[in-house]
Structures are given as structure tokens and as C-alpha cells.
């Protein structure tokens, strides 16, 4: 961002919004929005409390397992769809439906199928992430240069070798983009799971704090969540840029 030709540091807009938040909070306009400084103090206080650490651990666990499953299943499925007409015709409608479906509405069904525990939360997390990962991997494979595919065949690549040594790498820029968006969606998924299925992790904290009108606690947890999601997504964006050098000349 530039103002009068002076380059402002990357997060300047965040600083402005933070200041505004502080002002509105200080003015006591609404109990819903305590001043930012108060929230940060609360964050510091609860940051090493056992309840918070337990919630962080539970959330991180469900999130990691759910996202890993989405990646490990989503990428191969997407690549196979891009390579196999029949599979593509079979699966694509479903992927598109689930991509835009209100997944929250499916959570009760998952509870019936998989119970009220961690398993359902993990599956919810995966369901939020996997569709965009599949779709992006598929798109990545579809744009692979034809002669690269023919080169593999000419030099005798087995299907597995072609998959691992050519298709995956050729589609990597798109795959990484899908994983990044998938992870952001998974953050949403894990919290919704925790709120709807069983009150654990950050979901439980949100519920507890908002039911007791502990607004600065509520916001503190939300900020932590936002910061985590932001960091992961930035890390992946950096990774994406590392591979973008060949995205342009595949």
C-alpha cells in the first residue's frame, strides 16, 4: 500500500483497524466489543491457562488429522480424475455439489453415522477442506502439457512413475493453491464441528465465553484462531511462490 508515494509496511491496514477498534471499545458503545487492549491483556492472562492449552491441543489435533486426510486423499483423487475420463464423469458432479453445499447442514448426519466424538469432528474438518483440493489438483493435471505426457509414455514410464514423477510435479502449483484454500476452510470446519458435535477445543471455549458474556475472552480466542490460520496460509503462499518459477513455462 502506498500513500503519497511512501510505501507503508505490509500490515498497515490492520493497524488502522486495530486503532479504530480500540476507540470504539473505549467509548463503551457496546458490551459486544471491548477495547482491543483489554482483549490482548485477557489473551496474555488465559494464554497459559490449562483450559486454553487443552483447547488448543484438541483443536490442533482434530485440525491436523482432518487436513492431512483431506490432502492425502484429495490430491490423488484429483490427479486420477484429471487423468481418467470415466472417473471424472462419475465424480465431478459430486465434487461440485459438495464444494458449494452448506456442509454445516450435513453435520447432524455425520453425528448419526460417526458418533459424537473426535471422529466426527475430524471428518467434518476433512469435508470442509477436501473438495477444493480435489478440484484444484484436477485442474492442475488437466493443464499439463501434452508432450510432457507423451514424453513419459515414450520413455516407458509406468503409470505409477508417471503419476509420482510427472503429473504430481506438473500440477504442483495448482495443488498447493488448493491446499491453501482447503486449509482455510478446514479452520471453519473444525470450529463448526466442535460447536455442533461435542463441545471440546476452541468450540467449547467460544460457547463458554459467549454464554457468559465474557466478550474479551471470546475475542481473544478468535484472534488466536485468526493468527494461526493466517500464519499457515502465509507459509503455504510462500511455498507456492517457490514453485511458481515453473508454473509459467510448463
Amino acid at each position: 500500500m502506498f500513500i503519497k508515494g511512501i510505501r507503508l509496511p505490509g500490515m498497515s491496514s490492520l493497524i488502522i483497524w486495530g486503532l479504530l477498534w480500540e476507540l470504539v471499545g473505549q467509548s463503551g458503545l457496546t458490551f459486544f466489543l471491548p477495547p482491543l487492549s483489554e482483549i490482548l491483556i485477557t489473551l496474555y492472562e488465559i494464554g497459559d491457562s490449562p483450559a486454553f492449552l487443552k483447547a488448543l491441543k484438541e483443536t490442533a489435533q482434530a485440525f491436523t488429522v482432518g487436513v492431512s486426510a483431506a490432502i492425502l486423499i484429495g490430491i490423488p483423487v484429483g490427479i486420477l480424475m484429471g487423468k481418467n475420463r470415466l472417473l471424472d464423469e462419475l465424480l465431478l458432479p459430486w465434487v461440485n455439489i459438495f464444494l458449494s453445499a452448506p456442509l454445516t447442514a450435513l453435520v447432524p448426519v455425520l453425528m448419526v453415522l460417526f458418533g459424537f466424538g473426535m471422529r466426527s469432528i475430524i471428518i467434518t474438518t476433512s469435508l470442509f477442506a477436501i473438495w477444493i483440493i480435489i478440484l484444484n489438483s484436477r485442474a492442475g493435471v488437466l493443464q499439463i502439457n501434452r508432450s510432457l505426457v507423451e514424453m513419459g509414455r515414450c520413455f516407458g514410464a509406468t503409470p505409477l512413475a508417471a503419476f509420482v514423477k510427472i503429473y504430481f510435479w506438473a500440477a504442483l502449483p495448482e495443488i498447493l493453491g488448493g491446499v491453501r484454500i482447503g486449509i482455510i476452510r478446514a479452520v471453519k470446519g473444525v470450529i463448526i464441528g466442535q460447536l455442533l458435535i461435542s463441545l471440546v477445543g476452541f468450540g467449547a471455549l467460544f460457547e463458554l465465553y459467549s454464554a457468559n458474556f465474557l466478550m474479551s475472552h471470546f475475542w481473544a480466542v478468535l484472534i488466536v484462531l485468526f493468527a494461526l490460520a493466517f500464519t499457515i496460509s502465509e507459509l503455504l503462499a510462500t511455498l507456492e511462490r517457490k514453485f511458481s518459477y515453473y508454473a509459467a513455462n510448463r
Binding site: 502439457n145 508432450s147 507423451e150 514424453m151 515414450c154 510427472i166 514453485f243 515453473y246 513455462n249
Partner: peptide, 15 residues
């Protein structure tokens, strides 16, 4: 393996 192809657009692995 008895035939090898040289491609008009090279078909190199960019990575």
C-alpha cells in the same frame, strides 16, 4: 525402448 523421441517443444521437466 528401441525407439526414442526428440520433441519439437522439448518436453523437458521444468522442475
Amino acid at each position: 525402448p528401441d525407439r526414442a523421441f526428440v520433441f519439437q517443444d522439448f518436453a523437458l521437466l521444468p522442475w
